[in-house]
Design a protein around this nucleic acid. Structure first.
Length: 847
DNA sequence: CACCAGGGCGCG
DNA sequence: AAAGCGCGCCCTGGTG
């Protein structure tokens, strides 16, 4: 503790906020620690003792970036050292004057604020995530204030480490620079190579640069959630052009478009279109998350197809690393922190928007030069990048713009059906509610109204497990009684309310998770659009949902996403989607693809034989489980057998099997039976366990596994000291190549089918990928041409030509056709491949 | 008001 | 000691 500071500032009998009640003696009003005359003040949330872990961690970080620790005075936003009591804004406000007094006494040149509380105490301002990484001169006489996030935020979320370290590096350069707070630019474009395009002459200069460029990186800033929304606009466009000379020749072009201060505000689309020809003609077109920018530009008539997406390159090189542009540029390229609040761009000064926009493209191009070298060192992965991922992005741009057709009438009708059922359920549930005066006060709001909540809330738990006295069969981590479906199902016999609660869960989900968000997402053309993320999974599958939060602007913050990969498999839900009049919805899915590929990887002789002779492995398991002949096995039973096959295939143990058999079959299986069934499964397919062992060896040796198409799964957990974590990595090593190859094949088929549609001048389009299935929308008069094309492409992908891969297992695709997704009927395989029969089938089935 | 984790459940 | 894998969204309750 610094004595002089303590004497000048400390108030040992402070009662300014409630925290003093818990703090006494030395823990009340703890002032700064450090030498008199320290140039740097480091502000944390609470006082840190010199021995604390946090203090040592921070010292390591600061020393590593080159800060002289003897120059630091350690201060805190909250002066009372209190455990188990959270400080509110009121406490923070009350305490802030003491920190200000410390500043006045010390007069530090630099103030580093770690976390929201420290930033608030030092500046009086909030929004740490918005303001971090920038310098502020808040009051006269106090030096530069530099806020960043707290190290505990980094500990909770390791993905933040890159940005945190970049902030510290920047702070260190500022501190160590002899010129004081005037930090020289670091990895930013020289000012004479940054151009704002606000005149016709400027536009001509961009065109000249584009014509000379061999590579361009591009990035747009937008407002509105999607280009087809009424408020969807491109606020600005930035380009960084370069010739063969690399970054030394790079020039940044910042083009204001719809921004209020833009000279092109009213004719922004014309300006964009005027540039289109030159933009699209640059040989290499680079972007970070290119699908986003290309989608908007394509929608506004500039079909900019990317050739290099830095986010895809990052994902292929290491699927586990943070993939954002800013953390990557800061971590890997030593870039200074940059960024603005993008939530309300139209009210952000144009120069700020442009500077931000321009820096994005500058760093994207820098990243491109690094990543293309790294990719070229992994030949197979490079092939995957070139032959699958970049073409896939180009297709997904179109898939997302097209969206999927929604039958509004059907949606209304099905939704009404759900609402009617829910009303009945809720009426039934209310009959079992206690009279108001039996209900604890906490469930009434301030106005005295009862807050009934049948979801898994405190109210529902009190009502079921305390008032109705149902037994607690399971609890969650936090000790709360579980209200999971299977738990409630076992309570259903004890009380009719429990039975109604089980029914409610399913129907309520239709209402809140499906029909409600869907109804909000239909565009003026009755189409619904999802956002696919081709870098969204560890295995290479696409994820489906909404755009990342930072892309969504103020008015659309609460925009819901639509995940077209979790639409319930029934007519009620899938029957809402379909094809517009005159077209058909076609679903083409790979039959048992993962099992086939597992047979291929394991060289499993019996599986390969079953497939070579056209048999069905799920059916074989269903027969074994039910003891029925094939003719008596129901589709439902076969579906359950599928879950069992995949379970054992990917390392499920007998205990989990007992659970699965109970919840899926309603079958009570003993430990002995479960072990026997598992043994029977592996005895039936004797080459599977040796394959499991091989994958375990591989991942132990290399820390990763790879598909023959070049997709790598890094599994560093295999080196964890925790055996359970290791075992998890081993199971992932078994599953990943199979799942990855299957999804890459589905994606590749979509790319090739769509390209062929266009080459032949057809109007058929792809509208979605569901892991191992591809959905298409086909005009009726193109069905006879499209169906064989789809099936044929899926079954005979050019894997050997593109990836040097020979699959030794037959691949089968099933094709279903219908007016709607739900209710589409399967076209027999032989019919699809026989032109005459297919034409007859179409005549009979398509009106 | 915004964000987060955990529980739960939809899909492959 | 315990053991299928891969996702996204809705809801709650807690916290700043």
């Amino acid at each position: 503790m610094n004595k002089r500071l303590r004497l000048a500032v400390r108030n040992a009998v402070c009662t300014d906020c409630a925290l003093h009640e818990e703090a006494d003696g030395e823990h009340r009003c703890v002032t700064g620690q450090g030498p008199n005359g320290a140039r740097i003040a480091v502000v944390t949330k609470t006082p840190l003792s010199t021995e604390s872990r946090m203090r040592r961690e921070l010292e390591t970080y600061l020393r590593d970036v080159g800060i002289d620790l003897t120059q630091i005075m350690w201060l805190s936003a909250l002066k009372c050292q209190v455990w188990g009591m959270e400080a509110t804004k009121v406490h923070q406000k009350a305490c802030a004057p003491y920190l200000r007094r410390e500043f006045e006494f010390l007069n530090p040149e630099f103030v580093l604020c770690l976390g929201a509380e420290a930033w608030f105490a030092a500046s009086g301002w909030a929004d740490i995530t918005k303001n971090r990484g920038k310098t502020f001169a808040v009051t006269e006489g106090t030096g530069v204030i530099f806020p960043t996030i707290s190290p505990s935020a980094v500990n909770r979320n390791p993905g933040l480490i890159g940005g945190f370290l970049a902030d510290l590096r920047y702070f260190a350069r500022m501190v160590n620079d002899t010129a004081g707070a005037d930090v020289p630019p670091h990895h930013v474009p020289p000012p004479d190579r940054v151009h704002t395009v606000a005149t016709k002459q400027g536009l001509r200069a961009v065109v000249r640069a584009l014509r000379a460029a061999t590579v361009v990186s591009y990035d747009i800033e937008t407002t509105g959630a999607s280009p087809w929304d009424t408020d969807g606009r491109i606020v600005s466009l930035s380009l960084t052009t370069a010739t063969d000379g690399g970054m030394d020749t790079a020039e940044v072009w910042q083009i204001p478009l719809y921004h209020p201060e833009s000279p092109w505000r009213t004719k922004w689309r014309a300006v964009l279109r005027a540039l289109a020809k030159y933009l699209c003609a640059v040989p290499k077109r680079v972007a970070h998350n290119a699908k986003f920018d290309s989608k908007w530009m394509t929608y506004f008539d500039v079909p900019m197809l990317p050739t290099f997406d830095t986010i895809i390159a990052l994902a292929l090189l290491d699927e586990n690393q943070p993939k954002g542009l800013k953390p990557t540029a800061q971590q890997r390229l030593g870039a200074d922190p940059w960024g603005i609040d993008t939530k309300d761009l139209l009210n952000t000064p144009l120069d700020e928007v442009l500077a931000y926009n321009g820096l994005d493209t500058w760093h994207t191009l820098r990243l491109y030069y690094v990543l293309r070298v790294e990719l070229s060192e992994h030949k197979r992965t490079l092939r995957l990048f070139q032959h699958l991922m970049m073409p896939l992005i180009q297709e997904l741009v179109l898939v997302e713009i097209n969206g999927v057709y929604v039958d509004r009438d059907q949606l209304e009708q099905n939704w009404l059906e759900v609402k009617t059922i829910l009303d009945r359920i809720h009426a039934g549930l209310r009959e079992h509610l206690p009279p108001d005066n039996d209900i604890p006060e906490q469930f009434f709001n301030r106005r005295g109204e009862l807050q009934i909540n049948f979801n898994a809330s405190n109210f529902a738990r009190w009502w079921l497990f305390e008032y109705l006295g149902l037994p607690v069969l399971a609890t969650g981590k936090s000790g709360m009684p579980s209200m999971a479906e299977d738990i409630m199902a076992s309570l259903a016999e004890q009380h009719p309310a429990a039975k109604l609660m089980v029914e409610r869960v399913e129907w309520n989900k239709y209402d809140t998770a499906f029909f409600t968000p869907w109804s909000q997402q239909i565009d003026a053309n009755s189409r619904m659009h999802t956002v696919f993320k081709p870098w969204g999974t560890r295995t290479g599958r696409l994820s489906s949902g909404k755009e990342d939060a930072e892309k969504i602007t103020a008015g659309a913050r609460n925009q819901k996403g639509v995940n077209l990969q979790q639409v319930p498999r029934n007519k009620l839900a899938r029957g809402v989607f379909g094809a517009p009049p005159g077209s058909r919805f076609v679903e083409a899915d790979y039959s048992q693809i993962e099992l086939r590929l597992a047979a291929f990887f394991a060289k499993e002789r019996r599986m390969l034989h079953l497939y070579a002779t056209g048999q069905d492995i799920h059916m074989a398991t269903a027969m074994q489980m039910t003891g029925k002949p094939a003719s008596a096995v129901t589709p439902e039973e076969r579906k359950k057998a599928k879950a069992v096959n995949f379970g054992f295939l990917y390392g499920m143990g007998w205990m989990k099997f007992i659970e699965t058999a109970w919840s899926n079959y309603g079958l009570r299986v003993t430990e002995h039976e479960a072990r026997a069934f598992r043994e029977a499964f592996f005895a039936g397919f004797p080459d599977l366990l040796p394959w499991h062992a091989k994958q375990r060896r591989l991942v132990r040796k290399y820390g990763r596994v790879e598909t023959p198409m070049g997709r790598i799964r890094h599994l560093p957990d295999i080196y964890s000291p925790d055996k359970g974590v290791q075992a998890e990595a081993e199971r992932q090593a078994i599953n990943s190549p199979v799942q990855a190859l299957a999804s890459d094949m589905a994606a590749l088929s979509m790319v090739h089918v769509s390209r062929e549609f266009r080459r032949r001048g057809m109007d058929s389009i792809a509208i979605g990928l569901v892991h191992d299935a591809v959905n298409y929308e086909i005009p009726n008069d193109e069905l006879s041409e499209a169906l064989p094309l789809i099936k044929g492409t899926m079954e005979t992908l050019p894997l050997r030509e593109l990836f040097g891969l020979d699959l030794t297992v037959p691949i089968i695709a099933d094709v279903k056709v219908g007016t709607h997704w739900g209710g589409a009927s399967e076209v027999p395989g032989v019919v699809v491949s026989t032109p005459a029969e297919l034409n007859r089938w179409i005549l009979e089935n398509v009106s």
